[in-house]
Design a protein around this nucleic acid. Structure first.
Lengths: 148, 148
DNA sequence: TTATTAAAAGACCTTTTTGTCTTTTAGTGA
DNA sequence: TCACTAAAAGACAAAAAGGTCTTTTAATAA
């Protein structure tokens, strides 16, 4: 609920794709939707948008599916959120002021600013790849967790 | 953008109401909408819902408007968010897992948990009243800030 | 080449959010 | 009492989010 459904579906789908990619497989939309507990057609639409935006790759036909270009740098969570929800999601003021800063603070500013910064650090410091690796370690020698 | 528009409008409206109340006045929907930069009819609808839910009071007719019951305890930000957006907004998992905790952590859990807790502390520790007082002090001996 | 597979594209639909407007009800002051 | 004021209620509508389906295109394997 921090992010909207589309972002949640995208996060789960991309982590699954990366995890499969590490194993030299390209999952298709059907598998991804199933594994992430998201509606198939909607998942497909979301991933197609990401492909068009150049954040993800895909291959048609038999043996096709979604994958990350190994030549490209890791996909930062921040860039994903920017692509789906826009910048205000990360930088916006809780009170809805278009201009909220030290000089013109909203009544929540002092307390919310560090939270917003922590969130910004999180999404700027982590990528689908770094997060997928964590998830992998977690599910392998820990809780046998499935999504949803 | 952290909260939805309705919550933002409500926050701004309620702070304005409390500020006026401190000055023994009951602002009407028109004034509130103007001061908070929100659409009049929508603001009215939102406030009416809050009145029905018992979080706010109102008086019809000449000299009427919205006000807080001085007999009641302060309206905590948390309760406002619960009334408008529901609990998941505060407690929900970023990855969208219905069950995300220490035992079954999503790949963001370790990093997001402290952020979520800080946010929970903020909304549980502050009320419209406490926030209004801050805003008052701020606008009086500081920036002559207007909303939006 | 043909059958099969899977993404791409885009139309379409439903629900939720956001916003507007009209009519009714309840107060106030003259 | 009467005029006026302002909230209450609820219908209505536009836009955005969420979701489904069909047709087309591209790739592969047989």
């Amino acid at each position: 609920m921090m992010f909207n459904r589309e972002t949640e579906y995208a996060l789960r789908a991309l982590v699954h794709i990366q995890l499969q990619n590490y194993d030299d497989r390209r999952p298709g939309g059907k598998e991804i939707a199933q594994e992430t507990g998201a509606p198939y057609y909607y998942t497909a639409k979301i991933l197609q948008r990401l492909v068009r935006q150049g954040l993800l790759c895909s291959l048609k036909g038999k043996g096709g599916g979604f994958y990350f270009d190994k030549g490209k740098p890791d996909l930062m969570i921040r860039d994903l959120i920017l692509a789906i929800e826009g910048e205000k999601k990360i930088t916006g003021c809780v009170f809805g002021l278009t201009k909220c800063d030290e000089k013109h603070p909203c009544p929540f500013h002092d307390q919310y600013a560090p939270i917003r910064e922590a969130m910004a650090r999180l999404v700027s410091g982590e990528s689908i790849q770094s997060v997928a690796k964590k998830y992998f370690l977690n599910t392998v020698n820990g809780s046998p967790d499935k999504v949803k």
